[in-house]
Simulated assay, not measured.
Amino acid sequence: MDTVQIRKYRHEDDEEAVREMFTVGMSEHVPTAFMHALKQPLVQMVLMCVFCALLTSSMSFLLPVLAVTLLLAGVRQVASHATAKYIDFRLRTDLAHIDDVYLAGKDACFWVAESEGRVVGMVACRPAPDVDNAGCAELKRMSVRRSHRGTGVGKALCRTVVAFARERGFAAVVLCTSVLMADARSLYRHMGFTETREISLPEFLPKILNYNLVQFRLDLQNNDKRD
């Protein structure tokens, strides 16, 4: 951490690095999404039914094995497509207008972590938009390059958001992350955040595959600083 500087986002210097880091970071979760899908009872039941039905009708192992292999490839493709769709959506919305979304007002900000002239992490903060979290700051777009994970960059970015929110008088910091992001959830727990609820997404595929969101909250008035 001695060589890492956390500073406010500069569009002309950081836009390309931020977009690339977000894309790579989200794409890394495709294998996790695939394995998560395979653990779901509905997916296992479909694979088993297809295998047994083809085995019974063909009396050969080759056809059912090929069919299941194709189904597995299809599940992997669905995970890849869903991830690519989400990445594209974010790159066209808030990450395409960081200055307007996160830097135009005094109660929002976007930071990057820089090491030896290279952006290695990022995080954003803005007032939570939903009524249930009125008066809270929302931590968003946390990402750290794989090369710098486990070095304290993520913790430093979290502390930056917490300090900013406390300084602005927010009651708490809230965030949502995916059930697929185990490392991120572990980091937030270590930083003092507590899970408040699990949110089921309304879309068909995320719903049946249990790609849920987990909401975290850190109450600032009762929070002690952590290492």
Rank of each mutant, 00 (worst) to 15 (best):
M191P: 04
R141E: 15
D183S: 15
A128K: 00
K106E: 15
L209Y: 01
Y102P: 05
K207T: 00
L220M: 06
A82M: 14
L180Q: 08
R90S: 04
R141D: 14
R90G: 01
A104L: 09
C158D: 12
Q77R: 04
A73F: 06
T196A: 09
Y188G: 09
A184C: 06
A124K: 02
S57R: 04
D227V: 01
F164Q: 06
R146W: 04
G169P: 06
T83A: 10
R126Y: 05
S80W: 04
L209V: 01
E15K: 07
E195G: 03
T83Q: 14
L54E: 10
F89D: 12
I98T: 03
F61K: 03
V214I: 15
K39I: 03
G135T: 02
L70E: 11
H81P: 00
L139R: 04
W111K: 08
L180E: 08
R146T: 08
P127N: 10
H148N: 10
Q40D: 06
Y188V: 00
V173W: 07
D224L: 08
F193L: 06
V131H: 10
G154D: 13
I98Q: 13
S27Q: 15
A113K: 07
C49H: 01
R166K: 10
T3A: 13
R185T: 02
Q221V: 00
N212R: 02
Q5C: 12
D107L: 07
P129A: 15
I98E: 14
T194F: 07
R159Y: 12
L63K: 02
